[in-house]
Amino acid sequence: MIILFNGFAVFTKGNWSVNDFITAYIGIPIYFALFLFWKIFKRTSFVKPAEADIWTGKAAVDAEVWPDQLPRNFMERVWFWIA
């Protein structure tokens, strides 16, 4: 949604600018070009969601113990609360 409405102001009356349009929407063709390049270069295929293996290695990740980090200052305390 953000990508599509990023350059919305370009389409309002009197604000059309080719430079602003290209700046706002150049990311879309770049994304698809890189995606297609990767699919062709690596010869990867699409996987149906029902056939995707999302459980292999999950037990090892769940068994991982992360040490508790103590905040060193007020900003870290806020960040740890958010994250």
Results as ranks from 00 to 15, higher is better:
residue 1 M to F: 03
residue 2 I to N: 14
residue 3 I to W: 02
residue 3 I to T: 05
residue 3 I to M: 02
residue 3 I to R: 10
residue 3 I to Y: 10
residue 5 F to V: 13
residue 6 N to A: 09
residue 7 G to K: 07
residue 8 F to T: 05
residue 8 F to N: 03
residue 9 A to I: 07
residue 9 A to K: 10
residue 9 A to Y: 02
residue 10 V to C: 14
residue 10 V to L: 13
residue 11 F to H: 06
residue 12 T to E: 07
residue 12 T to Q: 07
residue 13 K to I: 05
residue 13 K to Q: 14
residue 13 K to L: 13
residue 14 G to P: 08
residue 14 G to R: 05
residue 14 G to L: 14
residue 15 N to L: 11
residue 15 N to I: 13
residue 16 W to L: 01
residue 16 W to M: 09
residue 17 S to F: 11
residue 17 S to I: 02
residue 17 S to K: 06
residue 17 S to N: 15
residue 18 V to D: 06
residue 18 V to N: 13
residue 19 N to H: 13
residue 19 N to C: 08
residue 20 D to C: 00
residue 21 F to Y: 10
residue 21 F to I: 01
residue 21 F to C: 09
residue 21 F to L: 10
residue 21 F to M: 09
residue 23 T to S: 03
residue 23 T to K: 02
residue 23 T to H: 03
residue 24 A to L: 00
residue 25 Y to A: 04
residue 25 Y to W: 09
residue 25 Y to K: 02
residue 26 I to N: 02
residue 27 G to H: 05
residue 27 G to L: 04
residue 28 I to A: 10
residue 29 P to N: 02
residue 29 P to A: 05
residue 29 P to F: 00
residue 30 I to C: 06
residue 30 I to A: 05
residue 30 I to Q: 05
residue 30 I to V: 09
residue 31 Y to L: 03
residue 31 Y to F: 15
residue 32 F to L: 07
residue 32 F to T: 10
residue 32 F to G: 00
residue 33 A to S: 08
residue 33 A to R: 00
residue 33 A to I: 07
residue 33 A to Y: 12
residue 35 F to R: 15
residue 35 F to K: 15
residue 36 L to W: 08
residue 36 L to Q: 13
residue 36 L to S: 13
residue 36 L to P: 01
residue 37 F to D: 02
residue 37 F to I: 00
residue 38 W to C: 10
residue 38 W to N: 10
residue 38 W to G: 11
residue 38 W to Y: 09
residue 39 K to D: 02
residue 39 K to M: 09
residue 39 K to T: 06
residue 39 K to L: 01
residue 40 I to L: 13
residue 41 F to N: 11
residue 41 F to S: 07
residue 41 F to Q: 03
residue 42 K to H: 04
residue 43 R to E: 11
residue 43 R to P: 08
residue 44 T to R: 14
residue 44 T to A: 08
residue 44 T to Q: 13
residue 45 S to E: 05
residue 46 F to R: 14
residue 46 F to H: 04
residue 48 K to P: 02
residue 49 P to I: 07
residue 49 P to N: 08
residue 49 P to Q: 07
residue 50 A to S: 13
residue 50 A to H: 12
residue 51 E to F: 06
residue 52 A to M: 03
residue 52 A to T: 01
residue 52 A to I: 09
residue 53 D to I: 00
residue 55 W to A: 07
residue 55 W to K: 01
residue 55 W to T: 01
residue 57 G to A: 05
residue 57 G to Y: 00
residue 58 K to H: 07
residue 58 K to N: 03
residue 59 A to G: 04
residue 59 A to K: 14
residue 60 A to M: 05
residue 60 A to R: 03
residue 61 V to T: 11
residue 61 V to N: 11
residue 63 A to F: 00
residue 63 A to V: 03
residue 64 E to L: 13
residue 65 V to L: 12
residue 66 W to S: 15
residue 67 P to W: 01
residue 68 D to I: 11
residue 68 D to C: 05
residue 69 Q to V: 14
residue 69 Q to A: 08
residue 70 L to T: 15
residue 70 L to Q: 15
residue 70 L to Y: 04
residue 72 R to M: 15
residue 73 N to T: 05
residue 74 F to Q: 07
residue 74 F to Y: 15
residue 74 F to S: 00
residue 75 M to T: 15
residue 75 M to Y: 12
residue 75 M to W: 04
residue 76 E to A: 09
residue 76 E to R: 03
residue 76 E to N: 06
residue 78 V to Y: 05
residue 78 V to S: 11
residue 78 V to T: 12
residue 79 W to Q: 10
residue 80 F to L: 14
residue 81 W to F: 03
residue 81 W to R: 04
residue 82 I to A: 04
residue 83 A to K: 02
residue 83 A to Q: 11
residue 83 A to W: 07
residue 83 A to M: 10
